[in-house]
Nucleic acid binder design. Sequence first.
RNA 1: GGUGACGUGGCCGAGUGGUUAGGCAAAGGUCUGCAAAACCUUGUACGGCGGUUCGAGUCCGCCCGUCACCUCCA
Length: 509
Amino acid sequence: MPEKIFRIYNSMTRSTEVVEPAQPGRLRFYACGPTVYSYAHIGNFRSFLTADLVLRTAQAIGWETAYVTNITDVGHLTEDDAADAEGEDRMAKALRSKEGERFANIWDLARYYANTLLSDWQALNLREPDARPRATEHVARQIRDVARLLEKGHAYETAQGVYFSVASFPDYGKLSGNVLATGLDEGVRDVVQDPEKRDPRDFALWKKDPDHLMVWHSPWGWGFPGWHIECSTMAQAYLGESFDLHTGGEDNKFPHHECEIAQAESLSGKPFARYWLHTRFLQVEGEKMAKSAGNFFTVRDLVGPESEGGRGIHPLALRLALISGQYRKPLNFTFDQLLACARHIQRFEEAADLAAQGVARNDPGEDALGEPLARLYEQALAAMLDDLNTPEAIAAAIEGAKRVLRDGRTMGGATARSAQNWLEKINGLLGIVAQETPRTAAKTAGSAAAEEAFAREVEDLLRQRAEARAQRDFQRADAIRDQLAGMQVEIMDAPEGTRWRRQISNPVS
RNA sequence: GGUGACGUGGCCGAGUGGUUAGGCAAAGGUCUGCAAAACCUUGUACGGCGGUUCGAGUCCGCCCGUCACCUCCA
C-alpha cells in the first residue's frame, strides 16, 4: 500500500496537520468518556463516534492502534471546589432522583449505567478500545499523582482539599486561550468556596469529604479525587507520559483538557498529547439539545424496541445520522435525516444480501464491479484521511451500494465476490453496513425465534396472495397486502417472485 | 464583556478562486392487474452590502443572524 497521509485539525495549533505518530505506523490515543450517572445520549455518542472513526481510518491505512477510553464512575462536584446547594454531586443527585430509586447505592447506579453504555456502544457499532479504565479502579494512582504534584510544588493543601496551582504552570491556557482569571472569581463562586484557594483559576485535585457517597483514604484524609486528575492519570498509565492524540467533546477543551495538560506536563515535563481533536455539539431540530426543550434523546430512546418505550430505529441508521456531518461543524440532527439514513441502511443490507446470494450461485461472468468499487473505496478512504470528511465518504459508499443493487440478482460469481469484499471494506471504514460485534446472545436467541415465526406467517400470507393473483382475484390479493401492511411489512413484486421486508418505523409518529 | 465557530436549493449536508458533491423530499418516466420497491430523468443554491480579481459560494471589510466556550455538560 502506498504511504497514506492522515490529516486532522489540531485544536492545539488551530490548524490542519498531518498526523505523524511518535512511533511511525502506531497511533496511541485517548478519548474522554462519559460520567455514568444516566443513559448516554446521542450527543455523547457523536463524540465517541469521532474517536471510532479515527480508529477505523488509522486501521484502514494499516496503522497499529492503541486506543484507550475511560468510564468516569466517580461523581464529581458540580464545580471544582464546591458541591451544589444541596452538597451533592451529579451521581448522588441521580441516585436521589425518581429514576435512581431502584439502585441500592451509588456503586450499583454506576455499574448499571456503565453496562448500558457498553450495550449502546455495541449497538452503534463502535469498535472496542484496547483498554477502558474506570476512575474508581485507579484511585490509588490518582492519589500518587496528587502526592507527586505536591512534592514538586505544583499543588498545595488547604483545610478543604488539595489544589493545583495554576501559577506554577506557565503554559496554562495554551489549548483554550483562557489565560486570564478575569470573571472566574465572580458569579458562581458564592455557594461554597474555599477561602484558602490562592488563585481563582486553581482547581481541585482532591476534595476532603468523609461524608461523600464514595470515599477513599488518602494522605489528606477521607475524600475523593478531583475530576481532571482521573483522565491524565489513566491516560499516562495506559499510554505513557506522552502520546499522540487526545479527543473529546468541544466542552472538554476548557477546563477539562486544559487542566489535564497542566497536571500531566507538570508531572512528566514532557508534552502530554501532541494532537487534540474536539467534536462539536450537535443540535436537534435546530435547537440545543436539552431536556427542557423536549428534544433530548438517549440512544435507547431511539433504538430501543417500541415495547420498551423506544422508537425502534435501526441502530446503524442512528450511527449514520450522527456521522452524516463532519465532526468539526455543528450537526443539526433531524428526524427527516434519521429516516433517510434508515433507508440507506436498508439498501446496504440488501446489497449485502444480493452479494451473498450471488456468491452462492457463482454464475460465470466477468467481474463487472471490481474496478469501480475499488475506486469508490479509495474515494471514501481519501475523504476520511482528510480530517474525517464523513459526508464525502458516505456519498462514495452510497454510490457503491447503488452499483451493487443495480447489478442485483443477475451478477455473476466474480462480481458478487467483488461486491462482498467491497462491502466489508466500507464497513470496516465507516461501520454502516453491518454490526461487527454480535449482540448479546440472549437477545439474539430470543428475537431469532420470534423472527422466524413471524417470517413463516408472512410467507404463508404471500403464498395465499400469489394464488389469488394467479386466479386474478385482485380484491383478495390486495386485502392480503393490506393485512401485511398492518403487520408493518412491505412487499415487492418482481419477475422472479415477491420479496418482503419490515417497514422502516417512522421516528416521528 | 472576553474568545471561537458557523450561515449553501423545500430539508440535511460537502465544496475554499474558474469544470456534477451526495442524500432526503418533490415531479416525470420504465416496470406492475393496481400499487410498492427498484431503476432512469429533472434542481444552478450559496445571509446582506461593499471591495479585490479577467473571474468569488470560495479572498478582504462592514452589517445582520445562529451557535458554542469562559469551572454542570460529549
